[in-house]
Amino acid sequence: MKSAKRSAFLYELLKNKVLYMMFLPVGLYFLVMAYLPMPGIVIAFKEFTYNGGIFGSKWNGWTNFRYFYESGKLWQVTQNTVLYNIVFLALSTAASVFAAVLLAEMTGKYFKKIAQTFMFLPYFISWVTVAAIAFNIFNYDYGVLNTILKKLDLVPVDIYGNPNAWMYLLPLFYVWKGIGFTTVLYLSAIMGIDHESYESAQIDGANIFQRIWRITLPMLWPTIVILLLLGLSRIMRGEFDMFYQLIGDNGLLLEKTDIIDTLVFRSLVQMNDFGMASAAGVYQSVLSFIIIVSVNWLVKRKNSDNALF
């Protein structure tokens, strides 16, 4: 029985050997880059030394996690990561649905095209360039904002020394960077709505606001829900690129802007604090996994078409 199974397996491999060989490059890539590091999570339960490496270092149980918890970082970065992600998700959904609905109703073809091209610009540039833009505007000594404030005889503001300001600026930058992209997603969903429903509603005397409220938005709802769920499943994963470029290692801002990803990076690369970095990293990976699987389970129960897997 067992050998029959094995020979069926070998037969399949032999029969399609060329195809399996064709899969090999990508298969090997993920084996090395994704699967090989996975056992390395044991490092979170060890006291890392360079000589010992991942597998030779001494076990120390939950010490790293206790340290992560007792430093107060665990609660702080979890809160920041989750809250920022919720705000990002809500604002960018609202802004892009708003923009998509307006773009769909606009009559001027060229204006529409040019506006959309403009809105796509931030999507194509790197966060490094965004950091340069932020520096140009908010830099205390020479920034445009303070130049204007000084001209108006107002007191210059120190944005890079004020953590509260970034609670508003980070969501703004996030929406700004992605609005062209997400608007296209919703716009193409609107374009897919059957035209006849609009026409018959118009004949029945519905004005354009009623048509948007009663037809466009309800028809967009499934798309909104799918994109929200996709976003929700990534709620423990922070936008490292944005936070690291805009905030960097500015200690004044960390309390309100440190997320799990920046904490892991800083602990690992700058402070060589392997205990903190690996404990926070494993905490994030495990929690993320649980969240994705549960979100998917919930979606599947309601409507299996929308499930992620």
Binding site: P37, G40, I43, G281, Q284
Partner: peptide, 26 residues
């Protein structure tokens, strides 16, 4: 095979093992 690929989007070892693998092992 598809699940073998897809699983890597659900779970990963995090930055520390990846960093050590690239730098110290490979």
């Amino acid at each position: 095979l598809a699940f073998y690929l897809f699983f890597t989007t659900l779970f990963n070892g995090g930055l520390v093992p990846y960093y050590l693998m690239i730098k110290n092992y490979l």
